[in-house]
Design a protein around this nucleic acid. Structure first.
Lengths: 248, 248
DNA sequence: TAGTGGTCTAGACCACCTC
DNA sequence: AGGTGGTCTAGACCACTAA
């Protein structure tokens, strides 16, 4: 791609956008060590001249790399190659059902119990009157025949829709709230803790009491910031792990 | 901001960029429900006319919102308000030391043991000759007087630098590798599991054996994809939780 | 065919940094 | 003063969608 007269080549007639070609070119230069962490990239006007494109196109390419954390810019100084940030960890726990679909394991949910209840103490802790009518579900998620997750959920029950088959196909808290509550869920908070299975949980999951488990508590909020659903999920620790990748 | 002739106002002489003002304006419209999930935003040329700016500026504003997941674009169709995605979970575990600094708890690391060892079986599993010389550390991280994390780490030992005070101030795997290995760490993989403390771990952490803990295994790779360091960290489950927020 | 978003240009002016 | 990145313009052409 480098020519002897110190210019580079991009194919302007390619269906691949020029800014993308430039971004990829610079990415390879960085990954091959032509530019090392801390080094400055050539200035934008220079890159524009070398590639024979306008400066805005170069900027678009650099923005691409910056959004991926590969470089950072400093006004008045230049654009610099970043060090990979490996200390801030991001654990992604994909939507559980999609995750299992990728593993090609047939996933099913079994609803163990559905009741209309009063919100009670838990609701009060979230700032909801304890008299509020709620849908209460106990669900177990199975991979094949094997129980993996045990979930207990409360959903504010304003519409008086019956519980239908849709719940069985997707008993996620988001879906339940969307179906049975007027307000759309807009924000979600989850807390992940480690715990050990109590008698009931162990029984449902088919493990010994005291087995380590992930405990994920979730609260869904509507646009006004009011809780509209909350749930507690217990993941079998021996079948579940979370992976995180950082860096280039 | 809305005027009676169906145009909007932006302050072009403000130090706040126009694209940012427009992005904020649209964000508020969306959050107030002027546009609901699934709705199309006005077309770009129309927005450009209403705000009295060029289309590129409008596009920059929309790109801002799109990168935050508030809207998405479809070529030939329009720009649409997204539904908040609440099912894909992102757990962030900040750099442990920074996290504690924010809580204003004095954090210290105590190095229990440092040795030069052969990589052994663990190295082999990672594709490293088992004869490779490695630095081996056992470290306990304390918040005040209380042990919180117990870490065992291996670092490929190519430079023969002595172990100095720097390690005590920041015994993170990244820092150790940067200090004692030629290659810069470029990628990191972490696996988070739940487990229970064994005898040794329980002793170091000052808890009873069998107490639930987070087990985080980390591997650092250099630019060529070769492992240059690995470690196992045990976090006290009764003192540690991970929180995740999703949505607008 | 008309309307949409996606790309790109060739300029311009600015704020900031360094010398 | 000269160089850097940040913003913005007023056009242009394109690929795609829908009627």
């Amino acid at each position: 791609m480098m020519k002897d007269d110190n210019t580079y080549e991009v194919d302007k007639r390619s269906p691949i956008p020029v800014y993308y070609q430039i971004a990829e070119f610079l990415r390879h230069q960085i990954q091959r060590g032509v530019f090392n962490p801390g080094d400055a990239l050539p200035p934008e006007p220079e890159l524009a001249a070398r590639f024979g494109v306008s400066r805005m196109t170069v900027r678009r390419a650099i923005a691409e790399l910056a959004s991926q954390g590969l470089v950072y810019t400093q006004r008045g100084k230049g654009t610099f190659v970043a060090r990979p940030r490996l200390d801030s960890v991001v654990f992604e726990l994909d939507n559980f059902y999609e995750e299992m679909k990728q593993k090609k394991i047939p996933v099913s949910s079994k609803i163990l119990e559905v009741r209309i209840v009063r919100g009670g103490k838990e609701a009060e802790k979230l700032g909801i009157p304890s008299q509020t009518r709620c849908l209460f579900l106990r669900v177990v998620v199975l991979a094949g025949e094997e129980p993996l997750v045990y979930e207990r959920k409360h959903v504010v029950y304003t519409k008086k829709k019956p519980i239908v088959e849709a719940e069985i196909r997707d008993p996620s808290l988001t879906n339940l709230v969307a179906t049975h509550t007027e307000k759309l869920p807009m924000r979600s908070k989850r807390v992940l803790q480690v715990s050990v299975a109590n008698e009931e949980e162990a029984d449902v999951l088919g493990v010994a009491p005291g087995t380590p488990v992930f405990l994920v508590e979730q609260v869904l909020y509507d646009a006004e910031g009011k809780p509209v659903g909350w749930g507690k999920s217990v993941y079998r620790g021996d079948r579940y792990k979370i992976t995180s990748y950082e860096g280039w």
